[in-house]
């Protein structure tokens, strides 16, 4: 099987088992630049594992993942780490901000991990914080901001490196509807404006409604609803 034409990131026949339980059992995936794809499915279905595989955090037991023409599973751990630093961005449900660092330092962290100078990194961070309307929190620590604000800081951090793929794992899971929708609006707007692809793992339909299409994962198998119909 060849990846669908024009896809930025695609996966074929992914299999991954944790012990005796198969988290992924032949899952497929593909995303184009600028596309927002929701990964849906009941909990325990393997949707987070799919995201981890796609992002190169976890190596699948078998199957291929192609990013921008490169075979991800052929890369070394440090190469994949470097790729994650430069090309990917991440937003998780919670607990991702370093509690000791101020918000602006948190946002600047990926740039600094890439070897950027502190000053430049924090300037770029501030720009993104402005776009996500949290620039007034720059001196605050994560424990001093609300959940919605913290999540926006996290989104700003995920976008600060201008990633080509943004991975969001239940980004609104810990937020109320209003905050959740605001975060989703800002996230998808920002991603669209930079033509970044967004892999959005969620179980909420209203969050998934911000996507262009959805992929359903059930029992480790994926189902691309657009292509199926």
């Amino acid at each position: 099987m060849t990846p669908p034409a024009g896809s930025l990131l695609s996966a074929e026949q992914l299999r991954k088992a944790y012990g005796p339980t198969a988290a992924l059992d032949g899952a497929e995936f593909s995303i184009h630049p600028g596309e927002v794809v929701a990964v849906m499915g009941p909990s325990g279905s393997g949707k987070s594992t799919l995201l981890h595989c796609l992002a190169g955090i976890v190596t699948p037991d078998s199957g291929t993942i192609t990013y921008n023409g490169h075979e991800l599973s052929a890369m070394s751990d440090s190469q994949r780490s470097a790729l994650r630093r430069s090309d990917f961005g991440f937003v998780f449900q919670f607990g991702q901000l370093v509690p000791e660092l101020t918000c602006v330092e948190n946002v600047a962290l990926p740039l600094r991990l890439n070897g950027g100078s502190r000053k430049e990194a924090e300037r770029a961070a501030l720009t993104w914080m402005e776009r996500l309307e949290v620039d007034d929190l720059r001196k605050k620590r994560p424990s001093e901001v609300s959940g919605g604000q913290g999540q926006r800081v996290a989104v700003a951090r995920s976008l600060v490196t201008n990633p080509r793929v943004l991975f969001a794992d239940e980004p609104t899971g810990a937020l109320d509807s209003l905050n959740g929708e605001r975060v989703m609006e800002l996230l998808t707007d920002a991603a669209r404006s930079t033509n970044a692809a967004v892999v959005l793992v969620t179980h909420e339909a209203r969050v998934a409604a911000y996507s262009d299409r959805e992929v359903v994962v059930r029992d480790g198998k994926s189902r691309d609803m657009e292509r199926a119909v």
Partner: peptide, 24 residues
């Protein structure tokens, strides 16, 4: 039966996308 549900979800999401877009 899961197919029935998936298909229906997809249809629902299609409507919801339109609504979300309109909302935005």
């Amino acid at each position: 039966a899961a197919d029935v549900l998936d298909t229906q979800r997809s249809e629902h999401l299609r409507s919801m996308r339109i609504l979300t877009d309109r909302k935005r």
